[in-house]
Structures are given as C-alpha cells and as structure tokens.
Design a protein around this nucleic acid. Structure first.
Lengths: 232, 232
DNA sequence: ACTAAAATTAATCAATTGTATAACAGTGTG
DNA sequence: CACACTGTTATACAATTGATTAATTTTAGT
C-alpha cells in the first residue's frame, strides 16, 4: 500500500488553500457541519495539516473569517476606486457594486451571516467584525463627504457620519435580503433602487446618483429640480 | 438509586420549553455547539424527549427557528398596532420599535444571523425565512401606504413596494449592526436616525415622523401617551 | 384507589468529532 | 549524491455526537 503522493507548498499558499476550503465548507454545511475532515478533504490534504498550519480548528476558522472580511472590504473599496469620475459617480459605483455580483453573492452572504452569529460570544470574531465594520464606515464617509459638499448640502462631520451609518445599514440590509432573496422580487432592481434611495437619504437632487455623468438613467424618477449649475 | 422526579407537561408547554432552550443554546454556542444534551439540560429534561416531541434534532431546530421568526414579526406588528394615532405615528412607532429593546437585542440578532446562514442550503429554513420576510414586507407596505397618501406623495403600488423594500433593508441593516454594535457609536442614536432617514426616503416633510403628534424628537424615549389631541 | 396510557428517564449504540503522535517523503543544501 | 529538515500522511485515541430502546414514573379515567 503506497502513500498518497503530495506536493510541498509554501506557507502562504497552503494556508490560503486551507482557509478557502474552510469558507467553502462553512458556507455549504454551516459551522456545525464544517468538520476538520471535510475541510481538509476539500483542500485535498489530510487532517494533520490543520495542527501544523493553525493551532487548532477554531484558530483556522477565525483566520478564515478574517480572510473573508479582508477580501470583502478590499473588493468594495476597489469598486469605489475603480470608478474615476465625479464624486457622485464614485459613490454610485460603490453602491451598485455592493448590490451586484460578485459582491452580492448568496454564498458569501450566507458565510457572512454565519460568522456574524458568532460575533457576540467569541471575542476573536468580535474584533474581526469591528475592524471590518469600521473600515467600511470609513470608506463610506470618504465617499459621501465630497458629494455633500459638491451639492452644497448641510455638512458637518456628525452629519456625514450619520449618513454613513444609515447608508451602511441600507447597503447591509439590501445586500443580505437581496442575496438570500426569496423570490419575492427580482434582484436586478436593487442597484437602481439603492441609488434612488441614497439620493433621497442624502437629499440630493433626483438623478444625482442615477445619472451622474453619462446617461445611464433607467429609473423612473421624474427630474423636477433644476440645480445643476454647481462650479467644480 | 432513585430516578429523577419529573412533571408531565402538556404538549404545547413542553414543546415551547424545548424550542426556547434550543434558541438559548444556539445563541450561546452556535449551531455547532448546540448539542442535544446541552439543549435538553437547559430545558431540564433528558435527551429522550427530543425524539418524543420532534422527530430529530434537526426537526427541533427548524421548529425553533419558525418559532423565533413568528415571535419577531408578531412583536413588530404589535408595536405598530399599539400606536394608535396618525399613520405617521404608527409608522414611526414601528420603526422605533425595531431599533429599541426588546426587538433590537444582541442575542436575538445573533440567533437570526446564525439561522440566515443556513437558509441557502436548507430548504426548510428557506421556506421559514421567505414566509417571515413576506409578512414583514407586507406589514411595512400597509404602514407606508396611508402615509404617502396623506402627504400627497406620488403613489402607486410599485412605488409603495419599492419603498417597503428599501425601508426593510434599512431596518434590517441598522437592526443588525446596531445590535451587534461594536462600540463605534451609541445605540440610542438609532431610533432618531431611522425616523429621519425614513422621512427622507419617503420624501416626507422634515419632522413628519420624528414629531408626528407631540414633540418626542430628541428624547429617544418611547413616549407613553395617554391623550391623543389631534392636530391637523 | 386501581388501572391503563403516555410522558419521561436512563442506559446503550455506532458514528463522528478534534487532537495528538509517529512514520514517511518531498525538497533544498553540502 | 547523501544528508538533514520539515511538510505531509497515516493511524490511533478519548470524548462527544444524535439516535434508539427498555424500564419507570406520572397522570387521567373509571
């Protein structure tokens, strides 16, 4: 009987491989069904490696969670950065990115929810969540600020922060319910829905986010305000 | 050695007791840590009863989830019904109720998230979630409609539904992040924050929801009002 | 009070869990 | 090309898991 042939991988590659297998298994079978054996099988290795690369299973799962959060915020920030243009275009792009693939993915949302459920009773998870949330809020504030200023809206740090909190809530809620979507409405209404909602939340003129630069206006919003002449 | 003395309870009482113990254990230890033994110990009975009252552990957990969702929507609807007054007051009361105790409870949110994480891969959970979500959306639409009409806002079934979807997203997101809250802001800002945000989302005049009848703007306390003097 | 039905306990089962350890094999270094 | 290093496999192990069954106790009906 011969042993399984294998390959020696670098620390980074193997760790990432194990974390991704962990995420896959947690998404598929939940935390209770994500056993060390299933995870290692998914990663194509044997159980011993868990101890070798992480202290324990719990340690591996915590690392996988941090890895996920990192990826999520990185993706979101990237969407914002990618949209070079007016502040409105950037904010709009960020909002839309959060409600379209690959960001709004059922598997990812399931994962996220599963981990969130552990935040309260696991200090390790709590810290990871807090950092991710702070980062997300910060990005949002950075995007909102110039838009408010550009439109001459009432502005202060507190106002900006409150807007970020509300907008973040809106994003999170729609992201979750939209991805899990129970077939109660079509998912593809969400990008337009959130840009419209954000306009009203921030009290921007209608169309400010749904048609910031080029005409990609597909919402049914009547444009009944003029107020387009603002010096850049 | 004598056996444990016990009491025969009615089917309803015992089942509820077991489901509540299940929720407690899932909240505390997660789905993976909520073993039959822990649950039955929490309920003060022995393991055999699970089979007697539910077919299996999974069955018991699904029932517990449905029980939780039922309680949640019932509580929320009740908050709305309790606030007799103008449509604005009812909507405001509903919104505030969702972001204050006992509705916004960290333990409950943890539970909810944990279960949501299973919706994708467990058809039983999916059905329970869908029904709960539909119910919640329906309540919201019912509350929004008269407010829109009363203020002469542009109104149609589609508009009303979109507002309900957005508002539901906002509630869910703030409810989650607020309850889990990572200390990044005080939780008690949320009731005022959401009424303000809802005013803008629905394009109501400022103060329409934050001061619908009497001035309860900045107090943050749900006012128990005895007399309804009705201003127009 | 007696009895029968049913609720509950207690004990047992095979399967699975996470962890630990020794043996092996691939890799780079001299 | 032999060597040592360590990534990796394979196996073992005690603990825990969910499920099952028989024995026992409570309760309701008469």
């Amino acid at each position: 009987m011969s042993r399984k042939t294998f390959q020696r991988l670098s620390l980074d590659v193997r760790r990432r491989s194990l974390m991704e297998a962990t995420l896959t298994c947690v998404a598929r079978h939940g935390l209770h069904g994500a056993s060390v054996r299933r995870i290692t099988e998914e990663a194509g290795v044997t159980v011993g490696l868990v101890r070798h690369y992480f202290g324990s299973k719990d340690d591996m799962i915590r690392n996988a969670y941090a890895y996920l959060v990192g990826q999520l915020t990185a993706q979101a920030s990237e969407s914002a950065r990618a949209a070079e243009g007016t502040p409105e275009a950037q904010l709009a792009s960020f909002l839309r990115a959060n409600l379209t693939r690959p960001n709004m993915d059922e598997e990812t949302v399931s994962l996220w929810a599963t981990f969130i459920g552990r935040v309260r009773h696991d200090p390790g998870f709590a810290e990871i969540h807090r950092d991710g949330y702070r980062e997300f809020l910060s990005v949002l504030e950075t995007l909102i600020e110039p838009v408010l200023i550009h439109h001459g809206c009432p502005y202060s740090v507190a106002i900006c922060r409150n807007h970020a909190i509300a907008l973040n809530g809106l994003i999170d809620g729609l992201w979750m319910e939209g991805a899990i979507n129970s077939g109660l409405y079509a998912q593809d209404i969400l990008p337009d829905l959130i840009t419209g909602a954000a306009e009203r939340l921030l009290e921007l003129p209608a169309g400010a986010l749904s048609a910031p630069d080029i005409a990609l206006q597909s919402t049914g919003h009547p444009i009944n305000r003029e107020q387009q002449s603002k010096p850049s």
